[in-house]
Design a protein around this nucleic acid. Structure first.
Lengths: 111, 111
DNA sequence: TAAAATATATCACTTAGTGCAATAGTTTGC
DNA sequence: GCAAACTATTGCACTAAGTGATATATTTTA
């Protein structure tokens, strides 16, 4: 499962990288303005993956942070983190975004 | 206003920097374990500032992104971004965290 | 073993988040 | 200039995440 997803991700970013160069070229030629360029950049890495309770918990444990501190980092409540890990509630959009950031870039990325 | 805040921030980080060195030293001596060290690191930069509707809007405009794309970046709905900017709703904890990250580190930090 | 820190669990409540639809304003291209 | 496309504003109704408090395991540390 993990392997398959990584493969997909890798293939996707290769394609995105090429698109990126292409669009950047179009921008330099003047075919698309700076604004469109910005929007393109932003839309590049927007895929946010769902996370199971177990995954959230293991993600936190990888950072060696208690639920309390982890919650503080995400600017949410301990109660929320607990419920995510148990599966009682699912993290909201922005919460999921933060969890993805931590997973992809490490905890420092959100400090 | 901006100037005053920058000053405060600067003074604060100087203190934090010293604390950081101190704690790192304690860690190297072996007085605190790696886990405590992690928690300390995490707790360093946890102050999240409130944002007025106008500030949110100007923050988005600085990134040259439409409400729709900005919402996508934060993994939230257009409706939510609109209400933040109007003042109808206030961004939740994790949302506010993301907005702060963008303000401090730029939009790339959350991509 | 005792004490302290962490984590789990439940309950009741609040409010942010969401989707839709209708309108108004702004750019863009012909 | 006009029309089309995009963007933003507003209101409404509903859902579910978020929260706080509290009590109870569980684990860690002294």
């Amino acid at each position: 499962m993990t392997r398959r997803k990584q493969a997909v991700t890798r293939r996707k970013s290769r394609i995105i990288d090429e698109m990126h160069e292409t669009v950047r070229g179009l921008h330099e030629i003047g075919l698309i303005d700076k604004r469109r360029m910005s929007e393109f950049e932003a839309l590049c890495h927007l895929d946010v993956e769902e996370m199971t309770p177990r995954k959230i918990k293991s993600l936190r444990e990888k950072t060696h942070l208690s639920q309390a501190v982890f919650a503080a980092v995400l600017n949410t409540s301990v109660s929320s983190v607990q419920k995510w890990e148990i599966g009682d509630k699912k993290p909201s959009g922005p919460s999921l975004k933060l969890l993805n950031l931590i997973e992809r870039k490490g905890i420092e990325a959100v400090l």
